[in-house]
Computed example of a mutant assay.
Amino acid sequence: MRRISLAMLTIAAIVLSVAPPAAAATPSTRITIEHRASELYPYDPTYEQEGPDYPATRVWGELRRCPAGVYNLSASLHQDGLPTVWATSGRGAGEITCDGGTESLSMSFYRTDPVLHSGRATVRFELHDAYVGTTLTETTRTVRIPR
């Protein structure tokens, strides 16, 4: 009887010393990019708003399990192997403030020559800590710009 009790105590001690599986499987921060971008719309990149309009598109994403803090969104769109420029003039573009939950992400893009067109494009969203610069999460996806 004494041997069984000692063996049971040993097994119980081992089981209690191991971390529970739920603690080891804590989900990480994740970005999901929508598979479809916005329809092309006219965008004038000049400060005076007197220049020609170029086709622009907007891409959306969702950031899940974002730790509370301030982050910078680094976003890029490539079409036909060529980069684009952000279609925004607002200060603070790309700044994300998280409260520990889910946040919406979006960025607009344009290109002057050759201009953006309907079809496939590759989008990359990266989130960096605003103060330290470390990468929190990143993802790339092929999106479709509709006609």
Rank of each mutant, 00 (worst) to 15 (best):
I145W: 05
A7Y: 07
R120M: 02
T32N: 09
I31C: 04
Y43F: 15
L116Y: 06
T88K: 00
G51T: 04
S5N: 08
G133K: 06
A19C: 11
G69K: 05
L82N: 12
A87G: 06
W60T: 04
R36A: 11
Y131I: 04
A23T: 07
V15G: 07
H128D: 06
T139Y: 05
T26R: 08
F109A: 00
D129A: 13
R144M: 09
N72T: 10
A25R: 12
E39G: 10
P21I: 06
P45H: 08
V18N: 09
S74E: 12
A75T: 07
L6C: 06
Y54N: 03
A13N: 10
A130C: 02
A19E: 12
R64Y: 06
C66P: 05
G90T: 14
L6F: 10
S74G: 13
S76F: 04
G51D: 07
A13L: 15
I96S: 02
T140F: 06
H128G: 02
N72D: 14
Q49R: 15
T137A: 04
R30M: 11
R64K: 12
Y71L: 00
I14P: 08
C98T: 02
A121D: 02
A37S: 12
S74I: 09
I145A: 03
Y54H: 05
S38P: 02
S38Q: 04
Q79P: 01
R141Y: 03
A93G: 14
A22V: 15
I31Q: 02
T134Q: 09
S38C: 06
S104D: 15
A19H: 11
T135Q: 14
T135S: 12
A23P: 00
L9R: 14
N72L: 14
I4A: 14
M107P: 02
P83Q: 00
L116P: 05
G61N: 08
R141V: 06
T139P: 06
Y110P: 03
R58F: 01
D99E: 13
D129L: 08
V123E: 01
E62W: 13
P45D: 01
R124F: 06
V15H: 08
